[in-house]
Amino acid sequence: MTQRVDLATVMDRLAIDELVTRYAVAVDDADRDGYLALFTPQGRVDHRGSGGVEGPAAEAADRLAQTARAFPVQQHLILNRLLRLQDLGGYPGDGAEVRADYLTTLRADSGGERVLGGRCAFALLRTDDGWRLTGVSTREKWRRDGGGEGVG
């Protein structure tokens, strides 16, 4: 690889890392528009493995408001990110995949708290507007419910 290709790969990795972080922030803030801006128009989610919806990203975005009403305090941490850029014979392509673990804390107004852990898979595509998500799937591995009413 040339230094130019190495630099482009580093820039891609930084942009993808920021996109995944923006995903977590949009979910935490129940920011529907910000969430949808992270996806390609055909972007899809599959959150069935963690009790959610499967379908177009807009359906998941609509669910953000419901979750925010039940749990107004949310924090989604996306950790242990493993990124694989498409390799076109030593040059980066326009596709990427990220596998990461998540740790989510949800707190209800009643004081009840739910803590979840699992794994995310992100599929990404380089577009004219930068990297965007084409798909996100989650699989819950564990859950702890505790304290207060309204958690269950």
Rank of each mutant, 00 (worst) to 15 (best):
A37P: 04
I16Y: 04
D33C: 07
G146W: 02
H76Y: 11
Q3A: 12
P72Q: 11
E140V: 01
L133T: 06
A30V: 11
E140L: 10
R48M: 01
V20C: 11
Q75K: 05
G146D: 08
T2F: 02
R22I: 01
A24C: 15
F39H: 06
L83M: 06
G55T: 08
Q75F: 14
R13M: 08
L7I: 11
L38D: 03
L85G: 04
A100Y: 01
A60P: 01
T134C: 09
G93D: 05
Y102H: 02
L88R: 14
H76E: 12
T9N: 00
D128N: 11
R22T: 01
R107N: 07
G49H: 02
D31I: 04
R126W: 08
T21H: 11
D87N: 09
E59M: 12
G111K: 07
V136F: 05
A70E: 14
R22P: 01
D101L: 01
L7A: 12
D109G: 13
T138G: 02
M11T: 15
T40E: 10
L38M: 04
D17L: 05
R114E: 12
R84C: 00
L36I: 09
Q75A: 13
D12S: 13
E18S: 09
P41H: 07
V151E: 07
V136P: 01
E97G: 03
F39D: 02
D145K: 06
P56F: 03
V98Y: 06
E149V: 14
E59F: 02
G146L: 12
Q3T: 10
R32E: 15
Y23P: 01
A61D: 02
T9K: 08
W131K: 08
F122K: 00
G146S: 15
G135A: 15
R32L: 09
A123R: 12
Q66L: 14
L64R: 09
A123L: 08
A60Y: 04
T127D: 10
G93F: 03
A15F: 10
R139P: 00
G95I: 00
R139H: 05
L64Y: 03
S50F: 03
L77Q: 12
G52N: 08
T67P: 00
E18I: 01
R81W: 03
L7Y: 00
R126L: 15
L133Q: 06
H47S: 02
D101V: 00
G34P: 08
Q42W: 02
R132Y: 08
L19M: 10
A121F: 00
S110N: 11
D12V: 07
Y91H: 13
H76C: 11
L79V: 14
G95T: 12
V20K: 05
R22A: 05
L83A: 03
D87L: 02
E59N: 07
A57K: 03
Y35W: 08
S137D: 05
E54V: 14
V73S: 13
K141R: 10
H47D: 05
D145A: 04
D6P: 00
L19W: 03
D94F: 04
P72W: 10
G130C: 14
R44N: 09
A65D: 15
L14E: 14
G43H: 04
D17Q: 11
L133M: 15
T104W: 04
A8W: 00
F122S: 01
I16R: 04
L14H: 10
D129M: 10
V27C: 15
V73H: 13
L125C: 06
R107M: 15
P72E: 14
G90F: 08
L106Y: 12
D128L: 13
Q86I: 03
R63S: 15
A65P: 08
R44W: 02
